[in-house]
Every structure is written in C-alpha cells, then in structure tokens.
Amino acid sequence: MTSVQGHQQSPGAGAPLRVGVLGGGAMAAVHLRTLSSSPYARVVGVAAKTLSTEVLALAELVGAQCTSVDRLLETGGLDAVVIATPTDTHADFACLAAEHHVAVFCEKPLARHPAEGERIANAVAAHGTKVAVGHVLRYFPEYEQARRVVLGGKLGTISTARMFRVNASPATVKGWYAEPSRSGGLLFDLAIHDLDWCRWTLGPVRRVYACQSGESGHEVVSVLLRHTGGAIAYIDASWRDKRLQTGLEICGTAGLYRVGGSTDAGFELSLDVAGAPSYLPGDAFDSVRADNPYRVELEDALGWFAGGPPPRSVLADGLAALRVAAAAEESIRRARPIEVEIDR
C-alpha cells in the first residue's frame, strides 16, 4: 500500500507515460485536468462519441488528438488509457486495452455486471496487463483518516458504520445515468463509493439487504451490510438532493468517529444565479492541490504502471465492490437479504 499522506512514489523516473483518455464527459475532463499538469504523463489522444466543450479545450491545451477508441489503440505507442466512458462500455474498452498491452485506469464502477468484470480479469490475466479502479473515496482525506482510526484500534471492536452520500442527479445532464441497464443507477454509480470503503475498512461483506424508491435517475437507496467480522454498516444514497453532501459515523466498543465531507469543508458559496446543478465534488475542479484525491489516485495508478507499488484500488477491489453492488441490486429485485457469494 502507498503512503496515506498522498503518494510519495514518483511515477517512474523515466519519460512521462503516454496516456489516452476515453470519454468526453465530466470525469474525462477531471482526469484531463490532472494529466495536463502532471509531469508523469503526456496525453496523446482523447476518444469519445461526443466531447464536451471542456474536454475539447483541455485536449487542445495538452496537444492531444481527438480520435476514435480503435484508432487510438491501434495507432500504438500508448502506455495507459483512462476509461471515463459510460459504465456499460467499460468492459469492452478495458479488454481491448488489455489486448493491446495497455494499462488501464478505469473509473468506478469497474463494469455494469460482475460477469463483465470477470471478463476484464480474464483479459488482464491473459495479457499480463494492469487495471486500477477509480474508487476515489479511498483517497479522500477524511475517509482515509477514518480508516486509519478504525484499523488503529482506537474505537475498539466496530459495531456500526453509518454513511450517507446524497447528490443532485447527474441524469439531468447526461441521460445514460437514468438508464439502469447502462449505469446501474445510483447504487452502482454513487453508493458504490461507500460499499467499497466499507469493504476496504471493515472487511469482507457476508450479507446485503437493500431497498430503492423514486423514479430512475432520481432514486434513493438504502443499503444494509453485515460484514463477515460482525460489524453492521448502513448506507443512505440519494439522487434527489440539491448538491453533494457526505458523511460517516463509525461506532465501536471504545469510541465513536464522526466526520462530514471534506469536499466543501470550510467553504460555502451562494450565487444569485440559477444554473444546472453540479454533482461533482469541489475537489474535482481543483486538481493542483497536493492532496487532491483525483490527482493522487491517478498519479498512484500511473506510478504503478511505471513500475512502482500498486495504488489503493486495483482490479480485484473494483470487482469485489461490483459484486456487493450486484448483491444489493438482487436484494432490491427479490426483496430479500442476499448472501455475497465471493468476497474475500
């Protein structure tokens, strides 16, 4: 594991990695901003069906060509790709990259279905390549600190963890988020952050129960996890709110740890102008900070691709989180608790 105080491993002492970015939306722009100011990477191409004006401007800024995914990979010369496309396309692109012996940084969730995640795992095993998964919460300072407090034993035996993550709906900006078959909805796109953090911090999940209500794109989910170690974790997630708000409270036999989100900590802005809601955390727009979670997660991954230690979330983590999310989805569909079959 890398240091918790940001990466200290320089991503390779050699030449910058040649990186392609797949996707033309909000997360592609976030990663392009990081890459544009990183000494460890040079963006050689951006590929997407449609590119936002922001992505176009960033591509121009870094001198990257805009092309198709096939051409980008077949032209050769890539060390890594960042996959920031709609969720249902992750698996095909990740497998294609593996076939071209290109390392992958894949946005969460790893894929729409666990079977697709397994397909990626097979391709990666066959071609000996690497996949990092963008479970960026592992790099948010308050969640990192909470994990350190838990693992340090300060709270005693953990009894309960209570997490919330509410946001404006991204579906008002990008319609595919409201299509469960493409995005998996709120559960796979937003709640998976906390599912992953709970697995990472409290250990494997034995059992899941979940409920969902509200129309697609504006749903609210409730996820109840029983960890193999006994802890009870509970997650609220919503796409019916005005802006992103997060928080967690962990209770143990020896104490309690509670923290709100770092995203807007100490910062409150009110503008008298109406506009489209933003669903991204403030950090996403401030990539130059040394502890910016989006910067550190990507540079950690690039460092791994260049021969350094692995980042906090790799293929196996992304796949395990996906399996827990899929169990929650099955629980919603069947209205019963679901045992998580494979979670180690």
Partner: peptide, 20 residues
C-alpha cells in the same frame, strides 16, 4: 445493543431506523 432496520411502507417507500 446495536440494530439497523429497513422497512417498506404500503405505498412503496422505504424507511430505515438506526436504533443503536
């Protein structure tokens, strides 16, 4: 000493309670 429930209502909403 710790408990979390998730209920449904007859109108299709969910309601959860942490009573720990």
């Amino acid at each position: 000493d710790c408990a979390q429930l998730v209920a449904t209502t007859t109108d299709g909403a969910w309601a959860s309670i942490d009573s720990s």
